[in-house]
Design a protein around this nucleic acid. Structure first.
Lengths: 152, 152
DNA sequence: TATCATGTAACATCATGTGATACATGATTC
DNA sequence: GAATCATGTATCACATGATGTTACATGATA
């Protein structure tokens, strides 16, 4: 079971962009994220469509923020990624004839539905600005650690 | 991202066993679950270790329930499966140097932690007996649908 | 016009869950 | 006690997706 790390990754990218003046190329972001430039472009496509970021071609081009960090939440970013599945556990079949399976599905569905509501509400409750503020708090306490592209 | 359906599947098996008098072989269960007998044995191993089911070899052998449905919950079964990962979304790195990533991780971790608590609490709140009762309610309303091994 | 960067399509690669096979162990039946 | 049946695993084969890579078209800048 491989976990989808795009949400984590794209938030990382956005916060870095917030610290950086001017556009950043996919190539640079890819190096920072230890991945490929094409993967960055793929991931950012959804954000661009929603107007959270802007991209420019040619010399001096790259990605830059196009939104107010105070108004965009983790939930917005999650949706921009196309609402990828949250849970790693699911039902064997969706609309089973078997009444046993229906009972099992109903119980699991209810539990997961509640958890999903809570998760999405949590996401909506955190703005990018709040994330950035948290980052700056950490920065004050550990000034040695850098903002840049040196990752573990 | 493939979902883990073992919890759904094993609950299905347990409820069927509750309806069935006497042991059921892995072969029969596999046919009902549209899978392989070895997969059934693999999955049941954890339940057996916890004493929720019993297995007997030889003629007339197979699997049978060894617990009170009123005391075993979905949470117990989930743990018997080895607490498989609940979420399909995760952090890019676990203990990053980067303070940006730390801030991102912290926000996501908190959200997922809350959701996990809720999920596990939901699981603990549902006994196998409750599931079975729900099944029987459905059975009364749709007597045509069978208990057996005819699955969609 | 050369270079740079995005935007995508198409393909390669790799991880991993699941199915399949093989065989050892133990229990039952005749 | 020999044959059969069933579990218990180890091991391998296979399918499925996610991710990485290559290639090339498009557009912008110098």
């Amino acid at each position: 079971m491989i976990r989808d790390t795009r949400l984590s990754g794209v938030l990382h990218v956005l916060l870095h962009m917030a610290e950086h003046e001017g556009p950043v190329t996919s190539e640079v972001l890819a190096r920072a994220m230890q991945t490929n430039a094409v993967v960055i472009r793929r991931t950012m496509a959804g954000l661009k469509k929603r107007g959270y970021v802007r991209s420019e071609k040619g010399h001096g081009g790259g990605w830059s923020l196009a939104c107010d960090l105070n108004t965009v939440t983790l939930g917005d970013v999650y949706e921009a990624l196309g609402r990828p599945p949250l849970f790693a556990i699911g039902n064997r079949s969706e609309a089973p004839q078997c009444l046993v399976e229906q009972a099992v599905n109903a119980a699991l569905d209810q539990a997961f539905h509640q958890a999903q509501e809570l998760l999405l509400a949590s996401f909506q409750g955190v703005t990018l600005a709040a994330l950035s503020a948290d980052f700056h708090r950490r920065l004050e306490r550990h000034p040695s650690k850098q903002t840049g592209t040196d990752h573990a």
